Simulated assay, not measured.
Amino acid sequence: MPKPSFMDTDHGTRIAYHRTHGAGPGVVFLGGFMSDMEGSKALALEDWARRTGRGFVRFDYQGHGQSSGTFADGTISLWLQDALAVIDRLTTGPQTLVGSSMGGWVALLAAKARRARVKALVGIAAAPDFTLWHWDALTDTERNTILTEGRLLVPSDYGPDPYVFTRALFEDGWQHRVNHGPIHLDIPVRLIQGTADPDVPWQTALSIADNLTGEDTEVILVPGGDHRLSRDVDLARLVRVVGNLVEGLR
């Protein structure tokens, strides 16, 4: 496995990344909560980019993977800053953002912040405002733990390490909620969502689509699809959707 490159940001994160040089429009992959850039979706897109000569970047947020920092110190604000630093310093020209789960939230925020650069967006089980859902789903005891101790550990179905939900994450998430009204983006958007996703209800994709103000939005429902959407057929679909979207921008 090739070693990553590193970029020191002005806000303090040392970001680990892999960049594939190629033609534009480029593609940037934004991973999910407690995920990293070595997942199958990121690697499938990187392979596609190399085969087609397309520019591509995958990276780790602060506290994720091989980047600096501690996961529990992260917030949506900080991870958004990481994404914007990657777009600003590691890419040129128009970009398509591909966001998985939490990465879909960060991608929507980044697209709004970099309207001149972000020309399309793909969400994979996109989870904007997921901290609001989690807060509502907590018991009174769990909420009290977060308010008094500052954090709550929750077992994960996707690995041995528990999820860490902090008070700062919930408070910051509220400040960055995006799917509570019109999402003013006039770019092509594709939302891929499994109907059997245990973490993100499939209706979320419809809600995002309804709130987007642009006219080129499509929801792609995958019957029986889970949250990861990482089967071979899922990866082939992702590459096809991203490839068609990027070609349409030329």
Rank of each mutant, 00 (worst) to 15 (best):
V233C: 13
A111Y: 05
A113D: 06
P25V: 14
L245D: 07
T204L: 14
P198W: 06
H64C: 15
D82Y: 12
L97M: 02
D232P: 11
P162G: 00
G63Y: 06
V164M: 07
Q193S: 11
V189W: 00
E215Q: 07
K119Q: 09
V98E: 04
T204R: 08
A120H: 03
L235A: 09
A107F: 00
P128M: 01
L169K: 02
G225D: 02
E247G: 11
R89Q: 15
W135H: 11
T20S: 12
G99V: 08
E215F: 09
A110D: 01
S230H: 08
M1S: 09
D226N: 09
M1P: 12
L221N: 03
D226C: 02
G243T: 09
L191R: 02
P94Y: 11
I183G: 06
L249I: 07
L78N: 06
L212H: 13
R151Q: 15
H184Q: 13
P128H: 00
P201E: 00
T145Y: 03
I187S: 03
G150N: 02
R51I: 04
T139S: 15
G93Q: 10
V219Y: 11
Y61M: 04
L191A: 11
D129C: 07
T145V: 14
V27D: 00
G214V: 08
G194Y: 00
L138I: 11
V154P: 06
V189T: 03
A116T: 00
T9W: 10
R177W: 07
L30N: 08
V239A: 06
D136A: 15
L97D: 05
Y17C: 10
W133I: 11
E142Y: 10
L30K: 01
A196Y: 04
T195K: 01
G26W: 07
P128L: 01
G123A: 07
V86E: 06
M7W: 11
P25W: 11
G24M: 08
D186V: 09
D172L: 08
P198A: 06
W202P: 10
V246G: 09
A205D: 05
V241G: 11
H184C: 11
D197I: 08
T92C: 10
A236H: 11
T91Q: 08
Y17D: 02
R50K: 14
L153M: 13
V189P: 04
M34T: 15
F59E: 10
T213V: 08
T9I: 13
K3P: 08
L132S: 13
D140F: 09
F59Y: 15
G24P: 07
Y158D: 02
F165T: 06
T139C: 12
F165R: 01
W105H: 02
G22W: 14
Q62T: 15
E46H: 05
L185V: 10
D216W: 06
Y158I: 00
A113M: 03
M102N: 09
A116D: 14
I146Y: 10
H176G: 02
D82W: 01
N179V: 07
A42I: 07
A126F: 03
L43P: 04
R117P: 00
T204E: 12
F130Y: 15
V154H: 05
V246R: 08
T145N: 10
L90M: 05
A85Y: 05
R231K: 13
D216R: 09
A236T: 10
G104N: 01
G224E: 01
R143Y: 06
P223R: 00
A85S: 15
D197M: 01
